[in-house]
Design a protein around this nucleic acid. Structure first.
Lengths: 239, 239
DNA sequence: GGGGTTGAATTAGTCAGACAGCTTTGGCAA
DNA sequence: TTGCCAAAGCTGTCTGACTAATTCAACCCC
């Protein structure tokens, strides 16, 4: 937008945005949403995007690489970048039906898989595995308290619980389920931003109960706590 | 059924693709595995990797961006790129365990996933889905009666039931689980060969009960029948 | 006029070099 | 030994140029 008369490219003076590529990523997602681009539609070329963003082609390219890795766009050499699947809209409000149904569908599987995983983890967890769970829980708590995005730490805790079943099939299944969901979460708007403060307290309590039950080797308690947590999670997603 | 890196980064499964960055991606994964790099360890710098690969820093950088997007590595400005989670773990391949424990482990997951799938299938199956189940069941019955190998037809029936949940997450999870089992079936001993005649009758009855319950839309009946079937299946595998 | 060919324009992929800003490290001084 | 600072090393970003693939329209032959 800003193309000064001096024609000199201004080096960004510590915009505190961290990384320009993140900004470019968001702005391209924005373009897809605002412009109403559908699957198969073509994005502006890398040079056009770079010009309109006031950034170099390098950062736009990094953003496109990550968008492609997230399955949102697809680059065809000599042709351009194309929309492969639409990024999710704001959670709760305008999330596209596709992504919402995928997420809700995966919750149906998570209910049974993770509830059982929590049960088995309570029965079988080794001291080392318990330590890993405690560590993941501490990190999740810190992330929640700092009001930043926490879904990575959330996932890490659930994964540590799956690992404590001493059954790699649970970890494998867990990773498989989250391959999809994780992409949607990262592609869409940050969840934590639309997370009300009271939900943070609830999430902390829920996780605390799960970890405590596993700590006490209370199988049924862990299963119930996990089931409750997942139920609340789904409700937070779709009231 | 897919294996390997295709689970994470969804590029063409064909090796040695035209794009250099794909090669760089694979070679970095290789480095992590061969070098035995653990979580938190540092990778060689971008310049070093580029030099050792004989590529430009640009392509190495693209590979690292995608590795970061896949959650395998993490780049810290001024410090370097670090391993965030081991590729083999993210890929969900548990090759280290012996076949029996893998199979028994996958049964623990199947118990919960398939029991719930049968429940939901009984509740939601459309006429077309019921027809597909009946068809798969007929083929399984024929295969069992002819005393030939029947595990492919068996899997097809269970998959049709998963599809009848109207939730693609169940089908996806089912396919994922059977990646492992299928490998064992092909590599290990053929189950059908060591199957006594009386087991054939039992398997037919068990499947008949499941299909009948889904036909009658009896959710609890379907769940119980599936659970019983899986219990018997595990006992047949490990008396 | 119709159909196949060609070539120019457009675009992603790759390369090389440079600098800015952050982290780590090692040496020097108190 | 402890504390600090400068230098080295790293990623992030910018620039400009070249390569290879795609697209599309003008063109030529039939």
């Amino acid at each position: 937008m800003r193309y000064g008369a001096a024609t000199i490219h201004q080096r960004s003076p510590a915009m505190s945005e961290g990384r320009l590529a993140d900004k470019a990523y968001s702005r391209i997602v924005e373009i897809i949403k605002v412009e109403g681009l559908d699957v198969g539609d073509r994005l502006p070329s890398e040079v056009q995007l770079a010009a309109s963003f006031g950034m170099s082609r390098t950062v736009v390219r990094e953003a496109l690489i990550r968008l492609a890795a997230d399955g949102i766009t697809e680059a065809r050499r000599g042709a351009g970048s194309f929309v492969k699947s639409r990024p999710s809209e704001r959670l709760g409000a305008h999330m596209s039906l596709d992504d919402l149904s995928v997420t809700l569908g995966s919750y149906e599987v998570r209910f049974v898989v993770e509830t059982e995983a929590a049960r088995l983890a309570a029965l079988r967890r080794s001291p080392a595995q318990m330590e890993a769970i405690e560590k993941a829980w501490t990190e999740l708590r810190n992330a929640l308290l700092s009001s930043g995005p926490a879904h990575i730490e959330d996932m890490a805790l659930h994964r540590a619980i799956a690992a404590a079943t001493a059954n790699s099939a649970f970890v494998s299944t867990f990773d498989h389920m989250f391959c999809e969901v994780d992409r949607i979460m990262r592609a869409g708007v940050d969840i934590s931003r639309s997370r009300p403060p009271e939900a943070i307290g609830a999430m902390m309590t829920e996780h605390e109960m799960i970890v405590e039950a596993i700590r006490l080797q209370d199988a049924d308690g862990a299963a119930v706590a996990m089931r409750w947590h997942l139920l609340q999670g789904r409700r937070r997603l779709m009231p």
